[in-house]
């Protein structure tokens, strides 16, 4: 029963969503299934929050290496949650001036907005900016001309990089504007012809893989996400 019921729910929801895509009068039913998923995900967030608290409190209690990070995590979590739920610094809506909590929790100037703007955003931007260094180190390794294939890859990458910068335009600016040998046009050609071809081939494979995987799950052939089918 523990696997039969989830499998039944999965199959029913999956079939409804597929049918709703093709049968117009069932689209409302498809939306209902999606809404149910959103409700489940929202409830599960409480589970996630509870798990976060439990895991970090245990790390602090056991004084595991790096427990200080858990303190920072918990403080950030509790403060953000409290500030958002209590709507600290939020002004009442003009329509309901006597209700202190009638404003939006993320209103400009509120404590939650402040945390979002001056803590969350800079931290996220920092992590994203670090990507540039990771790209550089990965490119350094990937573009080593070890063999013919790697050399071709290096040459193509160099051409594309050059074609995306002004240096590429400047280097072949002496050629006629419609010359296919101009680096920016060569770069476009490689992107539109070879890259698009490869990408489409992968996407066709992905689409077929999605269909086959969905069928395996809907038909109950693959139950590994619910447990082994053998036990």
């Amino acid at each position: 029963m523990r696997r039969t019921i989830p499998l039944f729910i999965t199959t029913a929801a999956g079939v409804v969503l597929v049918v709703a895509y093709f049968v117009p009068w069932m689209s409302a039913l498809g939306e209902t299934v999606s809404t149910w998923f959103n409700i489940l995900a929202a409830i599960a967030f409480i589970l996630g929050g509870g798990n976060l608290m439990k895991m970090n409190l245990r790390k602090i209690s056991d004084r595991v290496p790096g427990w200080g990070y858990s303190v920072v995590t918990l403080v950030a979590f509790v403060v953000t949650l409290a500030v958002g739920l209590a709507k600290v610094g939020v002004n009442p809506l003009p329509e309901y001036p006597s209700y202190a909590w009638s404003g939006e929790f993320n209103e400009q100037g509120s404590a939650f907005w402040w945390i979002y703007e001056y803590t969350w955003k800079p931290l996220t931007a920092t992590m994203f900016a670090m990507l540039a260094f990771y790209v550089a180190s990965a490119a350094f390794r990937a573009f080593r001309a070890k063999n013919i294939e790697a050399t071709l890859l290096l040459g193509t990458a160099f051409l594309i990089l050059l074609g995306r910068t002004y240096a590429g335009v400047w280097l072949t600016s002496w050629l006629p504007e419609d010359s296919p040998l101009r680096i920016e046009l060569l770069s476009e050609f490689v992107m539109e012809t070879f890259t698009t071809t490869g990408t489409r081939a992968i996407m066709i494979g992905v689409a077929l893989g999605v269909v086959a995987t969905s069928l395996r799950i809907l038909l109950g052939v693959d139950r590994s996400h619910l447990g082994s089918g053998r036990n």
Partner: peptide, 24 residues
Amino acid sequence: GEEFFAASAYLSGEPDQLGSLKGQ
């Protein structure tokens, strides 16, 4: 891409699942 979706079936080695790969 598709190898990722085939992974579970490949690792299981079960005829049903390998059959679905052939279907792809």
